[in-house]
């Protein structure tokens, strides 16, 4: 399959391997979490995780959920980190209450040195009280907010 705006050609098998490798390496998410499902590669490097058994029929709008974008590097989605967040073993940020409120609203979050200790720059899971909130991008001690706009919410009870 060929992706727009790139000369790189990438096959569905390669994508699957690449994603599994990334998820394990970056978040400690093992392949067994993905094995009941199948990955589907759509346009612009979007990867969906959906049922293994999909009938061959016209007018399919979406299969499963968008779990990542692959444009050279892998960019995990908030969907995926919310679904599998409880299994994430590394690169998860344990947020303070005010940070969690700010993140849910869509703001970027500056981390304290203690929070940064075990993290490496790149995509991170934002977590509060063991609840996975979504995806952020860590760089130079600050997390850029990756929550899709429609999912942002000014929380009052957390």
């Amino acid at each position: 399959m060929r992706r727009k705006g790139s000369s790189e050609t990438i096959s569905p098998q390669d994508v699957s391997g690449k994603i599994l490798g990334y998820m394990e390496e970056r978040f400690g998410l093992g392949p067994e979490l993905f094995s009941p499902y199948r990955m589907y590669l759509a346009s612009k490097g979007r990867v969906y995780l959906g049922p293994r058994n999909v009938p061959d029929m016209p007018k399919i709008a979406t299969i499963g959920l968008l779990i990542a974008r692959v444009n050279g590097a892998v960019k995990p989605s908030t969907n995926l980190l919310q679904i599998m967040g409880k299994h994430v073993e590394k690169n998860a940020v344990e947020l303070e209450k005010q940070q969690a409120l700010d993140f849910a609203k869509g703001q970027d979050v500056r981390l304290a040195p203690a929070q940064l200790a075990t993290l490496r720059d790149g995509y991170v899971l934002m977590r509060y009280n063991a609840e996975p909130l979504g995806c952020g991008f860590l760089r130079l001690g600050a997390v850029k907010n990756m929550l899709p706009k429609a999912k942002r919410l000014p929380l009052r009870f957390i």
Binding site: Y37, L49, G50, P51, V54, P55, M57, K59, I60, A61, T62, I63, G64, L65, N79, Q82, I83
Partner: peptide, 8 residues
């Protein structure tokens, strides 16, 4: 987080 769905 419904992974087992296909939307038509």
């Amino acid at each position: 987080g419904a992974l087992n769905t296909v939307i038509t």
